[in-house]
Amino acid sequence: FAGLSDISISQDIPVEGEITIPMRSRIREFDSSTLNESVQNTIMRDLKAVGKKFMHVLYPRKSNTLLRDWDLWGPLVLCVTLALMLQRGSADSENDGGPQFAEVFVIIWFGAVTITLNSKLLGGNISFFQSLCVLGYCILPLTVALLVCRLVLLAKPGPINFIVRLFVVIMMFAWSIVASTAFLADSQPPNRKALAVYPVFLFYFVISWMILTFTP
């Protein structure tokens, strides 16, 4: 706020005006007050924003929506879904190597924070939460892969079963990588994209590996 201290206001003129956030789009301006709107509207608007970002991940193109209006709702939902689905069905078989809820949760957030710090260290011009948001939303294809895997696992186990799962997981893994690099690569210096993408690759690889080796 160093710049604000330079502005001198004449004592006789009452200060008045409207505070507008320049980042918001013009469409929002007519309902700038969210106090009067119903709760349903508020929730629906946020849900729509989250849904729109999901669409952006599923069909990645050069767009700044995911970066501009970041939120952590989508990542939270995806992360919890993934962790819940990776949880073993029976609680008593605790020592059978299945990933626990807390573990998946920690891997995802710890990994995302590590990647973000790495990209900051490499000189990327992206904010901390923007990067977390993108990495979190790009788990969506892998969540879909897990869903498909669980459905496939209902069928008779065998080599064909495994090959189908392998194919699905590899496809979704590639999708995740492509989507996240489409959003994140622009924020890095052009000569260092490979360095920034490598930890992202590792992060999604570990998650895909957990999904592939999961058996209920």
Binding site: E94, N95, G97, G98, P99, Q100, E103, T114, W209
Partner: peptide, 24 residues
């Protein structure tokens, strides 16, 4: 970090039977 991932992979392929949290 790569070594961490490889170790996890090794533990998985060898069907190491301990809790995953401990593995990680």
């Amino acid at each position: 970090f790569t070594l961490v991932a490889i170790l996890l992979h090794g533990m998985k392929t060898s069907d190491t039977i301990i809790r995953e949290g401990t593995l990680m």
